[in-house]
Design a protein around this nucleic acid. Structure first.
Length: 652
DNA sequence: TCACGGAATATTTTT
DNA sequence: TATTCCGTGA
C-alpha cells in the first residue's frame, strides 16, 4: 500500500502522496489553502479526482470535516466524491457537510422557516407536482382567448421557473423566449400570481422556491447569515458553470465570513442555460471575488488525441470562453468519422452493424453509447435494436419517482402528513371511478371547511359517483389514523388499497407493482413519514445507468442510449452521435439565436469528449422538416467543412 | 360530469 | 414511445 510507504517517510506529514498521484495543476488546486479559487477543468481532466483529493487534504490538515461544505447538483456526485475521499483517507471524510444545493436549502429552511414567515412543515413540490398544480389553475382560468395558442401546463411551468431562476419578470421571459405567447401574457401572469398564492396557502415550496427563500433568508437576516456562513470554513462547488444567478448569490452570501471558496467547472460544458443556468457566473467569478486564483486543468486522461483535436476545433469557434487546449499523452487512436446515411433507417442499420462488429472484438456493450440531441431521435434505432435483440438502456427518459403509479401511492401518504394538501387529494379522488374534477373539488372543500384534519374525510358524504370506492378510501385512512403504524406499514396499507386500482388502470401492472414493492423496501429505512416524503422529493432513488431499480437485470451488460445532456460526466470506449443533421443538432429553434446556438455548440463539444477510442457522427442526408417546411440536408454546422485530417468523411 | 378513443406531436431536464 | 388534447356520447 502506498499509504504505508508514505507513513514510513517520516518527513512527510501526509498519508496521501499528493505530489505523486496528481499532476502539477491538480496538485496546485488540491493544496490551495485560503481565498478564492476557480478551477477550469476541461473534459476528462480529473475534475472529480481533484475535488476528492482536496477534501482529503483539508481533512488531513486538520480542518473539521463539518466545516467543509461541498455543494453539487446531484446527490449521486456528492456521495461519490465523499466515498472516494473516504477510500483515500479515512471515514472522517464521510462527515463532510455536503449535498445538493436543494437539500442544503431544505435543511436550512426547515430550521429557520419562521424567520421568513413560513412553517417548517412545508411540502416540497417536484416538477410534476408543479405542473399539475399549474395545470389545474390553467383549467380554472376560463377566459382563455385563442384556445389553441395558450401554452400548455408544461410550458407555463417552464416560463414561471425561468423567470424565477433568471430573476426576470414573466413579461420579459415571454417576450424573449416565447414571443408567440405574448398576446397571452396577461393570463399567464394571472396564473402565475394564483400559483404563488396557492403555494403560500398550502405550504408548498417548489424546487425554485427552496433556493429563492434560502437566498432571501441569507440576505435579509444578517445574524442568520453570520451563523450559517461561519459554520463553513471552506466551501467547494462542483459544476459551477451550471449554477443560476440565485445559486451564485447564495454562494456569495455564504462565503461572507470565511471567503474560502473554490469553484470547479468548465464553461465549455455549460449546457443548462435553458433552465436558467448562466455560464456568466463562471466568467464573472474572478470579478465577484477579487484576487481569485485561476487554475486550468488541460491534460485529458480520457480520449485519444484525434478526438481531442476535433473537440478543440469545435470549441474554438465559441466567442466567449476561457481559453484552453486539451491534450493527452495517449498515443495513436483513430480519427472521428462523419457518416452520411441515405435515411434514418440506414443510420440505424449502420449503428447496429458497427455495434455487432465491436461485440465481435469483445468490446462490452456497456462501453458503447449512442447519443442524440432529443430523446425521440432514438425511436427508430430502439425498434431496430429490439429486432436484433441487442439489450440497451435509455438514460434520462424515465423517472421512477415521476411515474404515475408511484405518484399515486405517494399522494395517499402525503395527505397523512399534510391533510390539506389539495393536490394530493385531488389525485386520490380522481383515481376513483365516476369521480372527476368537479366532485373531487367538492369533496376537498367539504374536508377543508371542517378544519379537522384527515378525520374530516369520514363525515363527508357524496351523492354522485362511486360510494363503494369512497368507502374503501375512508376505511384506509381510518385504519392508518387509528393504529400507530410504522412508515412501511402505512405504505403496505396504501399498497393494498391501491392494488385493485392499479390493476384496473394499467395493462402493465405486474411491472408497476414491482416498482411499488421497491418503494416499500425504501420506506422500510425510514422512521418518520415526513423525512421519507422529503427525501423522495429531493433525493429520489435515481434510475441511472447501472442503478436499475429492478435489481435482477441491473448488472446486465447493455448498450447505452442517452441524450447528450444526460451523458455529461460519463465516458465510453465508443460513442455514436446520431442525427448530427443541421436543423436537428443544432436544433432548428436555436439557429437564429446566437446564445442558444453557442449552447448547441457546447453540447456538441460535450458529446465529442465522451469518447475514449472511437467516435462516429451520423446523419440522414435528406429529411423534410414539417414545422419549417424545409429540407434538411446538411451535416451539423459544427462539423461541416472541417478538414479531412480532423474529421474523416464517409458515405454509406 | 365523466370516460373513452383517436390523433397529433415531439428539445434538452442534475433538483 | 408516450403523453396530451379534444370531441363525443352516455
Amino acid at each position: 500500500m502506498q499509504q504505508e510507504q508514505q507513513i514510513s517517510h517520516s518527513r512527510c506529514p501526509f498519508r496521501i502522496a499528493y505530489s505523486k498521484e496528481l499532476n502539477r495543476s491538480q496538485l496546485d488546486a488540491v493544496t490551495f489553502k485560503e481565498g478564492s479559487l476557480l478551477v477550469i477543468a476541461g473534459a476528462g481532466s480529473g475534475k472529480t479526482r481533484t475535488l476528492t483529493y482536496r477534501v482529503a487534504r483539508l481533512v488531513e490538515e486538520g480542518v473539521s470535516p463539518r466545516a467543509i461544505l461541498l455543494l453539487t447538483f446531484t446527490r449521486k456526485s456528492a456521495q461519490e466524491m465523499l466515498r472516494r475521499a473516504t477510500d483515500l483517507l479515512d471515514n472522517r471524510c464521510e462527515k463532510v457537510s455536503g449535498g445538493t444545493f436543494h437539500s442544503f436549502a431544505n435543511a436550512n429552511l426547515r430550521k429557520y422557516a419562521a424567520k421568513i414567515g413560513f412553517k417548517s412543515d412545508f411540502t416540497i413540490l417536484d416538477r410534476v407536482d408543479m405542473e399539475n398544480l399549474i395545470g389545474m389553475l390553467r383549467k380554472n382560468t376560463r377566459d382563455l382567448p385563442e384556445h389553441h395558442l395558450f401554452p400548455k401546463k408544461q410550458t407555463l411551468a417552464q416560463i414561471i421557473s425561468k423567470s424565477v431562476n433568471k430573476g426576470l419578470p414573466i413579461d420579459e421571459i415571454i417576450y424573449d423566449e416565447y414571443p408567440h405567447f405574448s398576446p397571452n401574457s396577461a393570463q399567464i401572469k394571472k396564473i402565475h400570481e394564483e400559483y404563488v398564492r396557492q403555494k403560500r396557502e398550502h405550504h408548498f415550496l417548489d424546487y425554485d422556491d427552496l433556493l429563492v427563500y434560502l437566498k432571501q433568508l441569507l440576505h435579509d437576516q444578517p445574524e442568520i447569515r453570520q451563523r450559517i456562513s461561519s459554520a463553513y470554513q471552506f466551501i467547494m462547488v462542483d459544476e459551477y458553470q451550471d449554477t443560476n444567478p440565485v445559486q451564485a448569490e447564495i454562494l456569495y452570501l455564504l462565503s461572507n465570513i470565511n471567503e474560502n471558496i473554490m469553484v470547479v467547472g468548465d464553461d465549455s460544458q455549460s449546457i443548462y442555460a435553458f433552465r436558467g443556468a448562466s455560464f456568466k457566473n463562471i466568467m464573472e467569478f474572478p470579478r465577484v471575488f477579487p484576487n481569485t486564483k485561476i487554475i486550468r486543468l488541460e491534460k485529458n486522461y480520457r480520449s485519444v488525441q484525434p478526438i481531442l483535436n476535433l473537440a478543440n476545433v469545435i470549441i474554438e469557434q465559441a466567442a466567449n470562453k476561457y481559453k484552453k487546449n486539451l491534450f493527452t499523452t495517449r498515443r495513436g487512436g483513430t480519427k472521428p468519422v462523419l457518416i452520411t446515411a441515405e435515411s434514418e433507417h440506414a443510420q440505424s442499420r449502420f449503428v447496429i452493424e458497427k455495434i455487432q462488429d465491436l461485440s465481435e472484438k469483445e468490446i462490452p456493450l456497456g462501453q458503447i453509447a449512442v447519443l442524440f440531441r432529443a430523446s425521440f431521435h432514438s425511436f427508430d434505432l430502439e425498434i431496430e435494436l429490439a429486432k436484433e435483440e441487442i439489450p440497451f438502456i435509455k438514460v434520462g427518459g424515465f423517472k421512477f419517482m415521476e411515474s404515475a403509479h408511484i405518484k399515486d401511492v405517494l399522494a395517499h401518504l402525503k395527505v397523512i402528513s399534510n391533510p390539506y394538501d389539495w393536490l394530493s387529494w385531488h389525485r386520490i379522488f380522481l383515481l376513483l371511478d365516476k369521480i372527476g374534477i368537479k366532485t373531487a373539488q367538492n369533496i376537498f372543500s367539504a374536508l377543508y371547511e371542517k378544519r379537522t384534519g384527515i378525520v374530516g374525510l369520514f363525515t363527508v358524504n357524496i351523492k354522485t359517483g362511486n360510494p363503494d370506492g369512497f368507502n374503501r378510501l375512508k376505511e384506509l385512512f381510518s385504519m392508518i389514523e387509528s393504529g400507530h403504524m410504522s412508515v412501511v406499514e402505512m405504505g403496505e396499507a396504501v399498497f393494498n388499497y391501491y392494488w385493485p386500482i392499479l390493476k384496473e388502470k394499467y395493462d402493465d401492472h405486474p411491472k408497476r407493482s414491482r416498482d411499488l414493492e421497491q418503494l416499500l423496501t425504501i420506506m422500510d429505512r425510514y422512521r418518520t413519514l415526513e423525512k421519507f416524503l422529503t427525501d423522495m422529493a429531493l433525493e429520489p432513488p435515481s434510475s441511472s445507468i447501472n442503478n436499475s431499480l429492478s435489481s435482477y437485470d441491473g448488472d446486465l451488460d447493455r448498450l447505452v442510449l442517452s441524450t447528450v445532456h444526460s451523458a455529461k460526466g460519463l465516458e465510453w470506449h465508443t460513442v455514436f452521435v446520431i442525427w448530427t443533421l443541421d436543423g436537428r443538432f443544432p436544433s432548428l429553434r436555436s439557429i437564429n439565436k446566437e446564445e442558444e446556438l453557442e449552447e448547441e455548440m457546447r453540447l456538441m463539444y460535450v458529446a465529442t469528449t465522451r469518447a475514449k477510442e472511437n467516435l462516429y457522427f451520423t446523419y440522414p442526408e435528406e429529411i423534410y422538416d414539417r414545422s419549417s417546411r424545409t429540407i434538411l440536408n446538411r451535416p451539423s454546422r459544427f462539423l461541416d467543412g472541417l478538414p479531412g485530417d480532423i474529421l474523416q468523411k464517409s458515405y454509406l
